[in-house]
Amino acid sequence: MNVAAMIKLCVAMAIFGSIGFFTIHTGIPAVELVFVRCICATLFLGGMWFVTGGHKTEVWDKKELGKTIICGVFIVSNWVFLFKAFEQMSISIAISIYNLAPIFVLIFGAVLLAEKMGMYSIFATLICFVGSIFIVGIDNFTSLEDFFSSGFVWALLSAICYALTMFTSKTIHGLSAYALTFVQTIVGIIMLFPLCDFTVFSGLTTSNWIYILGTGIIHTGFVYYLFFDSIRNLSTVVVSVLVFVDPVVAILLDAILLSFRPSLLQTFGILLIFGSILYTVFSPEQKVVVHEQEKGASS
């Protein structure tokens, strides 16, 4: 067991768990915040890439580059949708829905790759859906206006885009982690530049800028460095467990610093979602798939 890698991943996930708290204190909308985040990440990770000399040994392939660009569109959209969800709903609720991504990966695998989806996995998916309704609040589903204003759609779209990011990145093998992220954040800058309203940056306080730069340098550059540097030295099962540090920290910060108090129904919904996700990740049928993938990778 690589203890150093485990610590790095735990730190990365714990820091990322505070991104919702940072986001709501930046004072700027989601699109502009993600734009700054992409710039900071490009400079930080691009600098690390050059300092380590990785750019000299990088092997570029047109097909892989195309997949990376598509993956970049998904991950940037994921960030924008998640931050928009933070603007309209509690961080805890948004994060709970956002972490439905593994369930969507399972669904995409069944639909697009004809991977077998067991009866228990289908049941877990239905339980997640019921849990998401509980945590948003059944009263928000009484009219389309209330439903769209609840932030549920943004959080759900962020989960779907995150799942598409994971699904697409699984097919990219030749590029280094630095090159992968560098290209993705460049895609984000190009995507969001025409959509940005740069007037939102005028009149910001020093505190606002600290939170803005924090989301860019710390939550994107530094966290991604720790993340990519650690997951290569850990098993799939260990990574699957440690990534749950992220939502736990997010929910704790929401409760302690922002005084979020979930209702009994919302608490039940959160437990349903994370219980179903944990079952899906560690179910016997998924362990068989993981074992076959790791066996194939080592052969």
Rank of each mutant, 00 (worst) to 15 (best):
I138E: 12
V237Q: 14
Q266M: 10
T206R: 05
G66K: 13
A114M: 09
G109K: 08
H55Y: 15
R37Q: 07
V130A: 14
F108N: 07
F198Q: 08
K295A: 14
L175T: 09
S77Q: 08
L180C: 08
G275T: 05
G216F: 06
S176A: 06
T23H: 06
L195A: 09
S121H: 15
T205Y: 01
V238I: 15
F35A: 07
C71P: 03
F16A: 12
K62N: 12
Y279N: 06
L156Y: 10
L264V: 10
I7R: 01
A124C: 13
V130Q: 10
E115P: 02
L258M: 14
L43T: 05
L45V: 14
F152I: 06
L213V: 09
I217V: 15
L192F: 01
E285C: 01
L33M: 14
G53C: 08
C128Q: 05
A94M: 09
P284G: 01
K56T: 10
A124G: 12
A41S: 14
I273N: 07
F201K: 09
V238T: 15
T215V: 15
S149V: 01
K84N: 13
A12K: 08
L272E: 03
S230I: 06
T168F: 09
R261I: 13
V281W: 01
I95M: 15
T142D: 14
G118L: 08
I133A: 14
N2C: 02
M191Y: 10
V34I: 14
Y98C: 05
H173N: 13
A114I: 02
S202I: 02
G151T: 03
E294T: 13
G216P: 05
A114K: 15
E292W: 00
T220I: 02
D139G: 04
Q88R: 14
G216D: 09
V249P: 07
I138R: 08
M89K: 06
I172E: 05
S263W: 06
I256E: 05
D254I: 00
K62F: 05
L242T: 01
T220C: 05
G216L: 07
I122C: 14
W79S: 09
T267H: 01
V111Q: 00
A177P: 07
E58H: 10
F193Y: 12
L234N: 02
L113K: 15
F227N: 12
G214W: 05
I127M: 13
P262N: 04
Y279W: 14
T57G: 07
D61A: 12
D254T: 00
M89H: 06
S276A: 15
S202T: 13
F83S: 10
K63L: 09
L82D: 04
